[in-house]
């Protein structure tokens, strides 16, 4: 699990004269599950596309270990791009031929009850996502890049999706990199949380560490001095203050109730903070 499967150095990419990725540094190890979070339009999908080879960087390098070659990299974009005129059977056959896949596990598709003759164009988003996932997993990938697709899926398909990912991780030690907004069902899955802002990662921690580093205080009136408030929310009497970086001596110094917050809220705070910084810039 310790060898890096992907190493990104100094990655820069501009899109329509806007710098989207700015000397981004990042590495991923075998079997690691990292999640990328950030506000809309910050460049998460762009980064994923860059790692998948769909977009090419202006500067910097993406170093892949030999096991993360293009044939062993799976990419599911939020556009769920496939050849829409093909039927499911044709798409599977095409994918198998191109990637030289001997056996194709169609249990996932079977659970949806879709017919081989149906055209991709007529599938729902969820069915397409599962199809895409089946195709990509049949490659036995060692690197999986999944853009934000979970929110498109109904709860049952979402479950199937996540279970399939877990299966891949146990079977192949697949490294998984996902982009997520919603964390409701997957908050225990990522081992690393990366928050993207201004074209690079501003946070790169384990969820446990993050939970230790950010606490919430709800009180009336302003916050006492000396507390590093990263982000505050609320218009009324009671405001939510997110303290980051938090340390235990702050608990001793101030007689406040520092609440533990779960990962989704931490992420939300980071995103909110990002918006605030953008407003002030």
């Amino acid at each position: 699990m310790s060898q890096p499967i992907l190493e990104v150095h100094d990655l820069s990419l501009s899109f329509s004269r806007k710098k989207v990725l700015d000397r981004l540094e990042f590495s991923l190890r075998r079997g690691e599950w990292a999640v990328i979070a950030g506000r809309n339009g910050v460049g998460k999908s762009t980064l994923l596309r860059c790692l998948a080879g769909v977009l090419l960087p202006d500067a910097g390098a993406v170093a892949r270990s030999p096991e993360a070659c293009p044939a062993k990299t799976g990419f599911i974009s939020d556009r769920l791009s496939l050849f829409e005129d093909l039927t499911i059977g044709q798409a599977v056959a095409f994918h198998r031929r191109v990637f030289a896949i001997d056996d194709f596990d169609d249990r996932l598709l079977g659970r949806l009850g879709v017919k081989q003759k149906e055209r991709i164009r007529s599938l729902s988003a969820g069915e397409r996502a599962i199809l895409h996932l089946s195709l990509v997993l049949s490659q036995k990938p060692s690197l999986l890049l999944v853009d934000e697709v979970l929110h498109m899926l109904d709860p049952y398909i979402r479950d199937l999706f996540i279970e399939a990912l877990i299966e891949a991780m146990t079977a192949q030690e697949t490294a998984v990199l996902t982009v997520n907004h919603t964390f409701s069902e997957i908050e225990r899955l990522p081992e690393r949380v990366l928050v993207m802002e201004e074209g690079r990662f501003v946070v790169d921690e384990t969820p446990e560490a993050l939970r230790g580093m950010m606490k919430k205080v709800v009180c009336r009136g302003p916050l006492p001095n000396g507390l590093p408030c990263f982000f505050s929310k609320g218009e009324g009497e009671y405001k939510e203050y997110f303290i980051y970086p938090f340390s235990e001596d702050l608990r001793a110094a101030h007689a406040l109730d520092f609440q533990d917050i779960a990962l989704p809220e931490i992420i939300k705070a980071f995103i909110g903070g990002g918006y605030e910084q953008k407003r002030m810039a």
């Binding site: 877990i166 299966e167 146990t170």
Partner: peptide, 16 residues
């Protein structure tokens, strides 16, 4: 239970 099964059941990272 196998790591796989437990991970799937609990929606946990298999490494966990």
């Amino acid at each position: 239970p196998s790591i796989r099964d437990l991970a799937k059941l609990l929606k946990l990272n298999p490494n966990t």
